[in-house]
Nucleic acid binder design. Structure first.
Length: 202
DNA sequence: ACGAGCTGATCGCCTCAGTC
DNA sequence: GACTGAGGCGATCAGCTCGT
């Protein structure tokens, strides 16, 4: 359950997105994702994709951001969401990309598109020590506008010779760039040794 | 010593377009 | 029409380096 006190209303949001919509989305994602914890145990990366899908769906329903009905080429799949009425090829200011991750800072993508990014930081809490019936908790939501220059290319050695991840773009110095961008941050979750964990005794 | 950054290794699915 | 390769998409994890 999103806790109202943990929202920071001073963080700039993309046009059409509201704290209310994010609050509802946090709740929706936690509720839906709870059904799929086994997937996380099976294949964590797939689970993150699920979280991202739920988040996009929730924002589609609760704000004027809507899913892109991409009739264009596969290349231009970006973004996940755009502002309602901004056309088929919206400017970066009207693009909103959803990402889900359990890592505290990193932002990875396959493209260096400029635009708004909303990153849902989650943790899996199988014993439901934070909240009964909630094995999946969104503990922070970052909202930021990234320029093309914020991305750096991370090459790949994948090829006929085998091995290597597919090439990736990553945000450089994410911890610095995301400072002050957390529209939501649970006070009962701390980052210890680069991992989000429930704070003791709260 | 530890947090954060950087890089390589590995996983999965979908869609388009050209070919068989 | 079925099949396949290329190119999109979504991520995690581990080990190392570097700065405070």
């Amino acid at each position: 359950m999103a806790r109202r006190d943990d929202f920071d209303r001073s963080v700039p949001l993309p046009p059409g997105l509201t704290v209310m919509a994010i609050e509802k989305a946090v709740d929706y994602v936690e509720r839906e994702a709870a059904e799929f914890v086994e997937v996380y145990l099976e294949q964590a990366n797939v689970f993150s994709a699920l979280v991202g899908i739920f988040a996009a769906r929730a924002l589609d329903a609760n704000s004027v951001c809507e899913k892109h009905r991409h009739t264009d080429l596969a290349q231009t799949r970006f973004p996940d969401l755009k502002r309602r009425g901004s056309g088929n090829n919206p400017p970066p200011e009207h693009c909103l990309e959803c990402k889900a991750s359990k890592r505290p800072w990193a932002v990875q993508s396959h493209y260096d598109h400029p635009g708004w990014y909303i990153i849902w930081r989650y943790l899996v809490d199988p014993t439901c020590s934070l909240e009964p019936g909630r094995p999946v908790i969104i503990w922070r939501v970052d909202v930021a506008f990234f320029e093309r220059s914020d991305w750096k290319y991370e090459g790949s050695r994948a090829g006929a010779g085998g091995g290597g991840r597919t090439h990736t773009f990553g945000i450089s110095n994410p911890a610095a760039k995301l400072r002050g961008k957390a529209v939501y941050a649970r006070s009962d979750v701390a980052v210890v040794r680069s991992k989000a964990v429930p704070r003791n005794g709260v």
